[in-house]
Structure formats: structure tokens, C-alpha cells
Design a protein around this nucleic acid. Structure first.
Lengths: 365, 365
DNA sequence: CTGAAAGCGCTTACAG
DNA sequence: CTGAAAGCGCTTACAG
């Protein structure tokens, strides 16, 4: 996010404005009925395309609605309507400005769009209190369902809501103390594959750079790292493992320290996109980007343009978002089978940074 | 966006579910009143923290609300409430998954958050029909205001809405046939500075790679390019100018063609982030990234890691989003002065790709 | 085919 | 300090 000089200059524009005297209250169904000379109910029928209105009255109502530029109040119709649908869903993300959240949001929007449903999205910033506050704010607006990428370690605050029948789906991280549909990535497997890949390239000393240790995805990715080491008989050395890295800056600093230690690693596994960026910057700064291997978790838009191009474990974000939305809407439609749990496998995309050979590399190529 | 194999595996989880018999209707204010043994109005007073309720009744009401886990229905209260605020605003963006839209969204959310207002965001994808449909969908949900990054070449469909007094602010691109608050970047100036920078490095033949020609920001950036050439007495050559590039792929192809033509340019100006990425990939593929200069418009997260690091014109997205939201809320608060127009200057961030010298470079360094 | 009455969950405008 | 009545803009459940 660039923070350029915020010297915004304001200027008045054009001479004309909508006349103040011209400000009109928004027309209601009653106004349309009066103008068309029919009853409220007839307007309601036409607006909702219900059958059984004579072409003549239908014409009058449509003309009146057009003349007044009548826009039905969905919120009011909702109140009495039996299904009580607001035609909007709530989406709680890590941060709408981050690429993972953005891609997830988009996939969900795409499914919602086909059903004329709008998305209320908000950012949690790893703040547990915000998760509860925003969930409550969405419920008070009577959204038709909730898709949550949770941060709190306890979702039991949603128990009443769940019992009330509000559809909800969790994405990226599972809920705790609450049973609900969940869509996850194969974090542990993905990390294991990444680290095994580095081991195959001849590395024995591989650093781990990870996000906050209490985030489930970070825990699982760390597990994958540990499993890969163990299965190859390598020892775990806490001196080249770092948790709690939230920004590229902190990852940059952490890797700088690790690489200038005695007995530095010959390869690095970065558990998340910002961490990968910081790690890459560190390698560039130390001039080690062609000698120390790097594999990261999460796609990065410009991974091709980096020198060397980044080998990354990528998630099927679009698939996950689509699945989460589909699960939610099937619940909204009344599906009430047992909670589903979907795990989307990740994919290792080989591009160069992860194929820098290690000291124990054997075989050809 | 990774498109990994979508082989999501579903599995049932845990044996228990919330008992079906346990599904309860959501408690209303009436239920709370009945349980507390008071009138509806008293509950309303407590829920809205109105003064003038005896501590005794207040206690009873709070206990009852807690016991039932009562969540007020904002949507219903709204209907009768005199200010009629839904506490949500509508935001129409190019695409919630794109970094510019995401950063703008976040800045707006931040301002909204301080006022307990939620954001309904949606993607327009350069589709004029969608702009109208979504604006209508937002209005039918009675949002308190609209922030729009417009794509249609005519916003007069919002005239009635404007007259009704719905606050609205346009961002990134100005509205047409409608007078309203607008927040813009200095696109023309920014592009001009970029191209002048390339000329100063000794370039005389500079390609232009641009977005669709009917997008106002693309038009302005092209104007900046033309102005810079003219002021330096350089001739405009349509053979090295391309419009209509929407994706990095199309920009990649376009630049490949331009660079393999006779008399290729020695520098490139890319008018937008995806275009910059495609141009950069083309230079890398042709092995020209150290001989042909490149300056792009819009920030790119990994611009440091690219070889050479990217010189870019960056916008103050956070400032623009914040300003747009502040303008909107001041209108929501009743401000009714003449429409404002704010232009945020851009900033040239020099990192390397734009400083590759051209054949006419003079002087030292 | 058409419409008058009641009600959704809450607030407003009053009266006590 | 407390509450009964009316009403927000619409739909439901009826009656004609």
C-alpha cells in the first residue's frame, strides 16, 4: 500500500446542483397504488411478478412505478415475508486488502451473484473481539448466512445462532467448540511436500519461517515441516525455526538473523505469502538468492518475475470459496444433513527458487 | 489466482449435531418483554440505552435478554426509526480480488468501522449493466450511501436516487451526466512524470501500453504520455502504442510484438498494474530486461524482488479511500454544500527498471 | 381477478 | 418512570 503525500486538493465543480426544493421523499408502494388507482396489494402483485393481475391493471401499475421511479424496499418486504430472506450474506475475512481474502471473496461473490445475493464483507485482522462484534453486527442485520475465516479460538458464542438455524460455513480454519460446515486446504500435506522437495534437492538444513503459532494453518504447516524432516531422519533445530512472523518486514529480519548465524541453513520454507516476500528480500539483500533455496506457501502474483522465479505451494482458493458458498446456499435452501468438512489439496508449482541444489544433492541434472 | 486440481474430498465429521428439536425461533423484543414482565417499550428503551428506566426494570430486562440471547433486529427497527439508517453502505468496485480495489475497500471499511457501519461490496468487471443492476440492488436494500468506481459512461440512472437524497461518492473515475462528490488520482500528471523520467534517462522512442481506451483513467494516462512527448518535441508513433490491454497476458503479447518489430522502442510506459506485469514478463522472456527501460502505473506488491526492481507511479489509495468515505459520511450526516472534487497527486517511486539509460543519455552518472 | 384487514419487529408520539 | 396505540413499507391470509 503506497502512502504518498496526502495533499488532496479540493475544488468546487460545475455551477449546478440538484435543486434543494427538488428533494423528494422516496415513493412507496402506496404512492404507486394511488397514482395507478389500484390497491396496495395489486401493486405488490405486479412488483413481485405474481400471476393473476389483469393486463390492464398491470399496465397502469407499471406505468405509475416507472413514472415515480419506484424502488421496492427489500428490507420492509422481508419483515413480513415468510422466508424472511435479506438476500445478503456476511463474510468475515482476515483482511479484504490481502490477496488470499480478496480471491476468496471474489469466488464467494460469484456464487452469490447468481442468486441475487449481496455480500457484506469485513476484516478481522486476527482480532478475536472483532470476530464476535462483527458476527453480532451481521446477525443484527439478519443476513441469510455467514461465511467465516475465524480467528478466535472459541466459536461457541455462535451456538445460539446455530440453534436458531442461521446457516454458517467456516473457511481456511476450522471452528472450535462448534460443529459447522468447514472448508480447508491441505496445509500439513502441502508443507510436507514442499519440505520433501527441498530435501530431494539435496538440502539437510532447512529453515522454517512461520506465522503466529496459534493460527491453525500455521500449526498445520509446521507439522508438515516436522513430518518431512522426521521421515527423512533429519534433526529439528529450533535455531533455524521462527514463529510469529506476520509481515514481510519481520520475516526479512528473521531470515537475516538466521543466515548470518554460524551453521546457516541451505534452504528455507516460508509458511505464508508475506513471509515468502520477506524471505526473498532477505536472500536478495544478502546476495544469497542463487545459493539458498526457497519454497513458500501461497501464490504470489509476480512469482514469475522474481529472480529466481518462486517455487510455491498454491491453494485452490477459487475452489475453496466456491465450495464454501455452495455449502452455505444449500443450507439456506434447507439442506440439514450432518456438517461437511472439505479439504482441498494444494499443489507444488516448481519455478526455480526451490530447485537450487543443496550440498547433499545426488544423481544427475 | 491458482487453479489447482479441484478434487475436494467431502467427509462427515463428528457424530453429534445440534438437536433438530432444539431449533428455536429467534427471540423477539416481545419475548424479552414477556420474560421480564415489562412492556415492549421498556425493552426498547433498555436495548437502545435510552435514559429514564428504573434500575430495577433495567436489570430485569437485561437478565431476560441475556437468558434468551436476544439479538435486536436492526432491519426492523430501521423501518420505523426516523433517521432510517441501515448502518451499511454500498461499495461498487472494479473487482474485489484486484489489489487496487482491495486497498480502496480496506480504507473505506476503516472509516465505516468507526461508525459501526458495514460495507456491502461488489465487483463490476467493467460491465455497465452490472453497475446499474448492483446500484439498484443496493438501493433496494436501503444502504445509507454509495461509493462507486463507475464503469458506465452515463450515471444519469442515479438521478432520482440523487434527488431522493441518497449520499453518493465516485472514486477513481468521475461520473457522467450526474453531479456528485468525486475522488480521483492525478492520472495525467502521473503518466507525464513517468514518461518525462524516461526521456531524461535518454530515451526518445517510448512505447505506450494501455488499458481500454474508454476508461477515463486510461484516457488521462495516455494524455500524460502524449503531453510528455510533445513537450520534448518527440513524435507520436502509433506503431508503438497499444490500447485495450486488460490482462497481463495481452500486455505480454503486445509488447512481444512491438519489440520484435523493426525500429523497436528503447523504453516502455505501462499504464496499469496488470499491464506492467505482462510487459515485465515480455522483457524477461526476450532477455531485454536490462536493456529496455520500463515504468509502470500502480504499485505492485513484489516490485522490489523483480530484476530489475520496478520503477512505478503509485497512487495514494489509502488516502483516496479514506477521503471518499469521509465525504460520504459527511453527506450522511447532512452536509449539503456543493459537490466536492478531490484529486490526489501520484508519486514516482524510482527502483531501477526506469533508470536503464537510453541511447540519447547525456551527462554524468 | 381484486382488495381490506392484520401483522412482521420495532420506534414514534402520546397519555398517564 | 411506564406503557398502550399507531405506524414504518411491505406481505400474508382471507373474503369477495
Amino acid at each position: 500500500m503506497p502512502q504518498g503525500a496526502l495533499t488532496g486538493t479540493s475544488a468546487q465543480v460545475k455551477g449546478w446542483l440538484v435543486d434543494i426544493d427538488d428533494v423528494r421523499p422516496r415513493p412507496t408502494m402506496r404512492d404507486v397504488a394511488a397514482l395507478a388507482g389500484v390497491s396496495l396489494k395489486t401493486v405488490s402483485r405486479v412488483v413481485n411478478s405474481e400471476a393473476g393481475v389483469s393486463p390492464e391493471l398491470e399496465g397502469k401499475v407499471k406505468a405509475a412505478a416507472l413514472q415515480l421511479d419506484y424502488q421496492p424496499n427489500l428490507t420492509a418486504s422481508n419483515l413480513r415475508r415468510s422466508d424472511g430472506r435479506s438476500r445478503s450474506i456476511g463474510l468475515l475475512l482476515e483482511n479484504v486488502a490481502n490477496p488470499f481474502s480478496g480471491a476468496l471473496h471474489r469466488a464467494i461473490e460469484e456464487v452469490a451473484r447468481k442468486r441475487d445475493v449481496l455480500v457484506l464483507a469485513a476484516s478481522l485482522d486476527e482480532d478475536e473481539a472483532r470476530e464476535r462484534e462483527l458476527a453480532r453486527a451481521l446477525v443484527s442485520r439478519r443476513v441469510d448466512g455467514l461465511i467465516i475465516m475465524p480467528v478466535a479460538d472459541d466459536q461457541s458464542y455462535l451456538l445460539t445462532e446455530r440453534r436458531t438455524g442461521t446457516p454458517m460455513v467456516f473457511v481456511d480454519r476450522p471452528p472450535s467448540h462448534l460443529d459447522a460446515d468447514t472448508v480447508l486446504a491441505g496445509n500439513s500435506d502441502g508443507a510436507q511436500v514442499a519440505v520433501e522437495h527441498l530435501i530431494e534437492q539435496g538440502h539437510r538444513r532447512i529453515a522454517y519461517l512461520g506465522d503466529d503459532g496459534w493460527i491453525s494453518t500455521a500449526v498445520e504447516r509446521h507439522e508438515g515441516y516436522v513430518t518431512a524432516l522426521r521421515q527423512s531422519g533429519l534433526t529439528y533445530d529450533a535455531a533455524i525455526v521462527r514463529h510469529g512472523l506476520r509481515t514481510s518486514e519481520s520475516a526479512f529480519t528473521a531470515l537475516n538473523e538466521i543466515l548470518t548465524q554460524p551453521n546457516p541453513p541451505t534452504a528455507v520454507f516460508a509458511s505464508q505469502n508475506f513471509v515468502t516476500i520477506g524471505a526473498c528480500q532477505s536472500l536478495h539483500m544478502l546476495g544469497l538468492h542463487h545459493s539458498v533455496a526457497l519454497v513458500g506457501f501461497d501464490e504470489i502474483a509476480t512469482s514469475d518475475m522474481v529472480e529466481p522465479a518462486l517455487t510455491l505451494v498454491v491453494q485452490d482458493i477459487e475452489g475453496m470459496g466456491t465450495k464454501a458458498a455452495e455449502l452455505l446456499f444449500s443450507r439456506i435452501d434447507g439442506e440439514d444433513n450432518v456438517s461437511q468438512r472439505c479439504v482441498f489439496p494444494t499443489r507444488l508449482v516448481v519455478r526455480g527458487s526451490g530447485e537450487i541444489p543443496g550440498p547433499y544433492r545426488v544423481g544427475l541434472n
